[in-house]
Nucleic acid binder design. Structure first.
Lengths: 240, 240
DNA sequence: CGTTAAGTTGAAGGCGCTCAACCGACGTGG
DNA sequence: CCACGTCGGTTGAGCGCCTTCAACTTAACG
């Protein structure tokens, strides 16, 4: 069963997981597929079984801001549960497989199984905490700090680099997309990446990022993984 | 009953509202009261019956970012429902009265009355949408656009300036606090305020802000109130 | 081998920051 | 009643981080 591998669902009982699993349809999509456009009316919730996606909004002048990254196991557009109209677009970064479920079905499951509703809510709160931290980064941190912070966040969310000094993570983001996350220009992202590379903290070969000095990155970013609230999920996973 | 005035609770039945109301304790606090500090362990949820508050986080260098504004009727620290540890601080902007409820009691009410749980979730999703928009502002908009956008958001959330051209709103934020919302310095906020004043869009007399040209403000900011998702609450309010 | 997307580099400029001084309102205490 | 301290707001000068624009290189892929 697909959901068994994902720690997000570790708090559910076997029965709940099976009911949820049964409600999903599977869909395979190529990279760059647009799942939802800004302002769309949509009733379908997407769960990433595999691959990466991002949420984005565009400003009046046409520039784009990425307001959320969805990694394997994450929901792409959770607030479709609350709103019919979605005010961000969702697009695949990589090819991947999606589990899709209709809003009404998901809400019905939430009513039948409070643990499922609680899982949705918990997920929403974590997304909230991440956005909150992104606001701090965008508002009050330098380009170097922001980039280092993002790399730390991704490494932690992937489960890599928890304790060890080095890590190698697949980072399917172009420098332009990194720029859209960080509120910078692609040119400047390039320069800051070179700073970090020159300092011996990281290396990049294509879409693979190697972290040589994770404590150093954390120190630059002032990164504290507490805001990701992974301990609760981890605790559930251990208990299961 | 206090909750009757607040449109956030318009979707609840009379019975649900009474149960919820009965679970709250009231507390009056002076301005600048710190309700929660960054990283605190807390089990108390605060609902603003009157007054303004803000959520804030601090970067390594000591600078502060405000990551949420709570207006009358808003929850101050909703994610206490999900996490024991809160990664932002909450502080009163003005004197006010709080309705407080223990986390366990609120969760229990959510289990008994699905509409209450849904109200919590809906509120979380709206906060999410607001934060998402703030990320867009912080990452991709100029100082003038950000300030105009914030003023529009506040006017809309207060219920003022929906259709009319002019509005007078109580704005209990110092320029330093505006700067902490917008990711700017107080000095620059001052200058941008003067630009807007010079353009005949607004005026400020102490803590009262007068909007002369709301369409003009909206146009500068590229403000579209859809992301605040007030129509659903309004629909509920009308139905009640 | 040609085409396109992504990455790299340089030069110049601007938006917002920093630092510093000053003003005005307000409350407090002598 | 006035002196004084404090907080918030205002103004000016200079600087720096990041942007803009443009050209070029490299990689990927048919």
């Amino acid at each position: 069963m697909v959901l068994n591998g994902l720690e997000r669902f570790a708090s559910l009982s076997e029965e709940e997981r099976q009911h949820l699993q049964a409600a999903f349809a599977t869909r395979t999509v190529p990279a760059r597929t647009s799942l939802v456009s800004e302002g769309d009316i949509s009733g379908t919730l997407y769960l990433l079984a595999d691959g990466w996606a991002f949420r984005h909004q565009t400003a009046r002048n046409g520039s784009r801001q990425i307001v959320g990254l969805a990694l394997p196991g994450d929901f792409c557009n959770l607030d479709v549960l609350a709103f019919g109209r979605i005010d961000y677009g969702v697009r695949m970064l990589t090819a991947g497989t999606l589990l899709t479920i209709e809003r009404d079905k998901a809400l019905a499951l939430g009513l039948c199984y409070p643990a499922i509703a609680a899982m949705f809510a918990q997920t929403a709160f974590v997304e909230n905490a991440i956005l909150s931290r992104w606001a701090l980064c965008l508002g009050r941190m330098s380009a170097q700090e922001r980039l280092a912070h993002l790399l730390c966040e991704i490494a932690t969310r992937r489960g890599d680099g928890n304790g060890q000094r080095q890590a190698r993570i697949d980072l399917p983001l172009t420098q332009e997309q990194l720029a859209d996350v960080l509120g910078l220009t692609p040119v400047h992202v390039n320069r800051v990446l070179q700073q970090l590379r020159g300092a011996g903290l990281i290396a990049m070969r294509g879409r693979v990022m190697e972290i040589f000095d994770y404590p150093g990155l954390r120190s630059i970013a002032g990164f504290d993984p507490a805001y990701l609230h992974r301990e609760s999920a981890a605790a559930h996973a251990i208990a299961a």
